[in-house]
Deep mutational scan, measured.
Amino acid sequence: TLDDSATICRVCQKPGDLVMCNQCEFCFHLDCHLPALQDVPGEEWSCSLCHV
Rank of each mutant, 00 (worst) to 15 (best):
A36E: 13
Q23C: 12
G16H: 08
L18K: 02
T7I: 12
C32H: 03
D17L: 06
C21N: 02
G16E: 06
D4A: 10
Q13T: 11
T1M: 05
P41I: 06
M20V: 06
P15A: 13
L49K: 15
F28H: 05
P35V: 04
I8L: 13
A36R: 14
N22L: 03
R10I: 01
C9Y: 00
A6S: 08
C47P: 03
C32D: 02
D3F: 13
S5F: 08
M20D: 02
C50S: 04
H33S: 13
V40F: 13
E44I: 05
T1A: 15
D4R: 13
L49A: 15
P35Y: 01
L34Q: 13
V40Q: 05
D17F: 11
T7R: 14
D4Y: 05
R10H: 15
P35K: 09
Q13A: 06
C47G: 06
P41T: 02
V52W: 01
L2R: 08
L37N: 06
C50T: 05
R10W: 02
A36Q: 02
C9T: 00
K14T: 06
L18W: 01
C32V: 00
S48Y: 11
Q23K: 10
L49H: 15
H29L: 00
C9D: 01
N22R: 11
C24L: 00
E44H: 12
P35L: 03
E43D: 14
Q38K: 09
D3T: 02
D3E: 14
M20I: 05
C32I: 00
T7D: 13
V19R: 05
H29D: 01
V11E: 11
C50F: 06
P41L: 05
V19H: 14
C32T: 00
H51P: 15
D17H: 13
S46L: 13
L37E: 03
G16I: 03
G42L: 11
H29V: 00
D17E: 10
F26E: 13
Q23W: 05
C50D: 09
L30D: 01
G16Q: 04
C47Y: 01
T1L: 04
Q23R: 09
V11Y: 03
H29Y: 00
F28T: 07
W45H: 11
L2T: 15
A6M: 12
C50L: 01
C47I: 00
M20E: 06
C21Y: 02
L18G: 02
E25T: 12
L34S: 15
E44D: 09
W45G: 10
C9E: 00
D31G: 12
H33G: 09
C21R: 00
K14M: 09
I8E: 12
E43H: 14
W45S: 12
C47Q: 02
V40C: 05
F28C: 08
L34P: 13
E25H: 02
P41Q: 09
H51C: 07
F26I: 01
Q38C: 05
V40R: 15
G16W: 01
S46M: 14
G16R: 05
D17T: 11
I8D: 03
E44C: 14
Q38Y: 04
V52R: 15
H29F: 01
T1H: 02
C24P: 00
S46R: 11
S46A: 14
A6N: 15
S5V: 05
Q23V: 08
S48V: 03
L49I: 12
A6C: 00
P35Q: 02
V11C: 05
A6G: 10
W45D: 03
D39T: 11
C24W: 00
C21I: 01
P35F: 02
V19T: 06
L2W: 06
P35E: 04
N22H: 04
C32R: 02
I8S: 14
D3I: 07
K14S: 05
S48N: 10
L30A: 10
T1V: 12
R10N: 14
D17Y: 03
S5R: 12
P15F: 01
C9G: 00
E25F: 10
C32S: 03
L37S: 11
V11D: 03
D3R: 07
D31L: 04
R10K: 15
P35A: 03
Q13C: 14
L18P: 01
D3H: 09
N22S: 12
C21S: 00
D39A: 09
H29M: 00
F26H: 05
D3G: 04
A6P: 08
G16P: 00
L2H: 02
P15G: 10
K14L: 03
A6W: 01
S48D: 08
N22V: 09
S46K: 15
L37F: 05
L37T: 13
A6H: 06
C50W: 03
F26C: 12
V40E: 04
I8C: 14
L2M: 13
A6I: 01
C21Q: 01
D31Q: 13
G42D: 13
A36H: 09
C24Y: 00
V52H: 04
Q23P: 00
V52M: 07
M20W: 01
C21P: 02
S5N: 04
L18H: 02
C21D: 02
S48A: 10
D31R: 06
G42R: 11
Q23M: 05
E43F: 08
L49N: 15
D4E: 10
S46Y: 08
C24E: 02
H51R: 14
P41C: 08
Q23I: 05
H33N: 10
V11L: 13
P41A: 05
G16T: 01
M20H: 01
T7E: 13
Q23Y: 06
W45C: 07
P15M: 09
C21T: 00
V19K: 02
G42Q: 12
F26K: 15
Q38A: 12
C9I: 00
Q38F: 05
E44V: 08
A36T: 09
R10E: 04
C47F: 01
P15L: 02
P15D: 08
W45M: 07
E43G: 11
V19D: 13
D31S: 06
W45N: 05
L2K: 12
A36V: 14
E25N: 01
E44Q: 12
E43Y: 03
F26S: 09
P15C: 02
W45Y: 09
T1F: 15
V52T: 11
R10D: 11
L30M: 07
C21A: 00
F26T: 02
H33V: 13
D4K: 15
A36W: 03
L30P: 10
V11Q: 10
D4M: 14
P35G: 08
S5E: 06
M20Y: 07
F28L: 05
C24A: 02
P15N: 05
D39S: 08
Q13R: 12
V52S: 14
F28E: 06
W45L: 09
A6E: 15
Q13F: 13
D17R: 12
A6L: 09
A6T: 04
H51K: 04
V11P: 01
S46C: 10
T7W: 04
V40T: 07
D17A: 02
L37R: 11
I8G: 04
V40G: 06
D39W: 03
D31Y: 07
L30E: 09
S5T: 09
S5A: 04
V40S: 10
I8F: 14
L49F: 15
V11I: 12
